[in-house]
């Protein structure tokens, strides 16, 4: 099922949480939704899950509009809300049974589906406990189980790994990857590594608008730009080294990172490389290089550049 978001606008009072956002998610795609807090990720996801109605715009899920056929869309969506709300006073099996019934799963299939979910989400040891007695990680698994129980075509997960320990995060990521092979998955996060590890496509949203839409590799490429080198040079006075480096024509700027260790950050002019010239300069002046590392811009930096202004 494809999801088409068209000119989505949602206001809270005078403030626009989402401002004219349009994008498309193809069936079978795993889309990562990134953005700082309050960027509009959750609002967009809530609208997709038919929990809130946008003032303007429409979302089409498999051709059905959220305004006209929310009941059909809801049947095909598995949704894990941001704070993972669950009925704390119910036990896991009763809760999953309730969700299964609400989804209209035939009675004879329900026990099988519940067992399947308990196994998939690793809840075997806890299945008779009350949800309120579970740790946050296990509650998150119950949240995933309730989102998956009716085998939906589309999975919307709002920050699925918050509050989990590193092992659990890896497990949940594996689970999402496995699910993502067959289903359309949209997940939001502000942890970039997570999105990079699990998603085919990344959408960065800031102040209610989409700022980037592409794969992680594309993003990197886009922000890569000039060559940046971390350089350590010894064998001379730091000021002299600085001056002689500055004479190299392809170098755009030099920053001193560490005076004691004589470390520099060197940025070359667009489409040039300064590695050879640096080496030649050092040889000429009898300096020796202690370090020379090309710095790759991390996704974190790109994210910061795009969302800070």
């Amino acid at each position: 099922m494809d999801i088409v978001v068209e000119h989505l606008t949602k206001r809270y009072g005078p403030q626009k949480a989402v401002d004219n956002v349009s994008f498309r998610v193809k069936a079978g795609e795993v889309l990562g939704f990134l953005g700082p807090n309050g960027a509009g990720k959750t609002t967009t996801m809530k609208a997709m899950a038919c929990f809130i109605k946008p003032e303007e715009g429409d979302i089409l899920v498999g051709g059905y509009s959220i305004h006209d056929h929310p009941e059909i869309i809801k049947k095909n969506i598995g949704y894990l809300a941001e704070n993972n709300p669950l009925y704390q006073e119910m036990n896991i099996i009763d809760f999953l049974e309730f969700v299964a019934k609400i989804h209209g799963i035939p009675k004879y299939l329900i026990p099988e589906r519940i067992l399947d979910m308990i196994r998939t989400c690793g809840l075997e040891g806890e299945k008779h406990k009350l949800i309120g007695e579970l740790s946050k990680g296990y509650q998150q698994r119950v949240g995933l189980a309730q989102a998956l129980i009716h085998d939906p075509d589309i999975l919307i997960l709002d920050e699925p790994t918050t509050g989990l320990d590193p092992n659990q995060i890896v497990e949940i990521r594996e689970l999402i990857k496995r699910i993502g092979k067959e289903k359309t998955v949209i997940l939001s996060s502000h942890i970039l590594a997570e999105v990079e590890a699990t998603c085919d496509r990344i959408l960065i949203i800031n102040n209610g608008r989409i700022v980037v839409d592409g794969t992680a590799a594309e993003l990197r490429k886009q922000a890569q730009g000039n060559e940046i080198l971390k350089l350590g040079v010894q064998g001379g006075n730091i000021d002299h080294i600085f001056e002689s480096l500055f004479e190299i024509e392809t170098i755009d700027s030099i920053d001193i990172i560490d005076v004691d260790k004589q470390l520099f950050e060197i940025q070359s002019l667009p489409n040039t490389t300064s590695v050879k010239s640096i080496f030649d300069t050092c040889v000429r002046n009898n300096y020796y290089i202690t370090e020379l590392t090309p710095t790759e811009k991390k996704l974190e930096d790109i994210f910061r550049i795009l969302t800070l202004h």
Partner: peptide
């Protein structure tokens, strides 16, 4: 408790 969101994003 936030469970309204849970309930109303089901086919209800």
């Amino acid at each position: 408790a936030g469970t309204l969101e849970l309930l109303l994003t089901k086919p209800v």
